[in-house]
Design a protein around this nucleic acid. Structure first.
Lengths: 210, 210
DNA sequence: AACAGGATAACATATTTATGCGGTTGATAC
DNA sequence: GTATCAACCGCATAAATATGTTATCCTGTT
């Protein structure tokens, strides 16, 4: 018997989920709450197997609730529910120890399947979420994107830009005239397809040129 | 009609997959190969929707094959097949642009479901793989830098700076006067302890404010 | 020898940014 | 009720940046 707690501020959805799950053999909703205010006490008291946690709740939101639970309990499986496959939230949730991330529009049978998967150690995710996770993943470690083939000198200049140096300071650091610095920077902008210092800096970070 | 290519060195499994898929309405195996030696040509010639790619193959392995395909084709969906949910391979595959990662022991109906999911832009993963991905993800970066307690508005402005907007553009995007933008930015500089746009951008990246 | 390209440099000009000062409004806290 | 603070706005000025054009020197390639 899989025992669940539900956190969901919308009364209709809360009731709907409870009925759906209680109406299915092998599942039981221990309790359903409309906010996370005393989530730690509740989890300690009920000792559920799985928790369904809405992300968008007034007061303490789902992410914060998730974090609080994880501070005292690493075992219970937590499935996050959300309306949007919002980039920032996904990242927050999974790096805070969620076991799955499911859109609210997921059909009932699929949801039950996800709950089972979570309980048995899986990490169920709506497909669109999984795609996002993969994207984040591949964007984070990719060893350098394009090359832009900057010359050595141009790379040095860009390095100084990233460290916040002004043209004047770069000129003095590199023992060249400020006009030469300008020339280099103009070339850099061409190669990076940007037209301001801060864009160049941003691109340097994004594409791990530095 | 979903058109597939299969790369799998084991003859039994290759035949089995082909028959399974060809025997299902809406799916068609264009061809099945036992290695990746001329994978790029084949993909160009057949123009499949989805590719099933075994990871462990003699000669050019599945990861390498994946990379070669991705160099010339970013569109085709590629599902990796493997026996083990091996940490290193998973990481390699997803950061090289795989669309899904499926264990060979996946039951046939589930596999067909995964193919459909992949084709429609999802990222199907066996539960155990998904768990691994999440673990890798959360083990990675967790600590956020200082807070700097920027106000909401200041965060928005900083966001625009990072995206390379000029004061003028920010003013127009945020429907405020350019002088107000200046005010916000001055405050941001104070809080971040910097004194130029590019320093602020660099700090935003380093400290993951954005 | 001719050529391409990187590094250097100068000059001019328009735009953007940084910084100083001042101010009003509205919401929240004490 | 007044103190605080975010958000809003204006004006002025100096500094920095962006852009264009031009030119020399050197090195490696064809």
């Amino acid at each position: 018997m899989t025992k669940l707690l539900i956190y969901e501020d919308n009364p209709q959805l809360r009731e709907g989920l409870t009925m759906l799950i209680n109406g299915t053999d092998g599942f039981e909703v221990l309790a359903a709450f409309k906010n996370c205010n005393t989530v730690v006490d509740e989890v300690n008291a009920w000792k559920p197997d799985v928790i369904l946690m809405d992300i968008d709740m007034p007061g303490i939101n789902g992410i914060e609730g998730l974090k609080r639970i994880r501070q005292v309990n690493a075992e219970v499986k937590i499935l996050m529910l959300t309306v949007f496959d919002d980039n920032k939230n996904v990242f927050q949730a999974i790096s805070s120890g969620a076991n799955g991330y499911v859109l609210k529009k997921t059909p009932p049978t699929k949801l039950l399947e996800y709950i089972t998967e979570a309980q048995s150690g899986g990490a169920p995710m709506t497909a669109s979420i999984a795609t996002q996770v993969l994207k984040m993943f591949s964007s984070m470690n990719n060893e350098k994107g394009e090359d832009y083939n900057l010359s050595d000198r141009e790379k040095q200049v860009l390095q100084f830009l990233v460290e916040g140096y002004s043209y004047k300071m770069i000129a003095s650091e590199m023992f060249i005239a400020i006009d030469t610095v300008r020339s280099h920077i103009k070339k850099i902008y061409e190669k990076l397809h940007v037209n301001s210092k801060s864009e160049a800096v941003a691109k340097a970070f994004k594409d791990k040129i530095v």
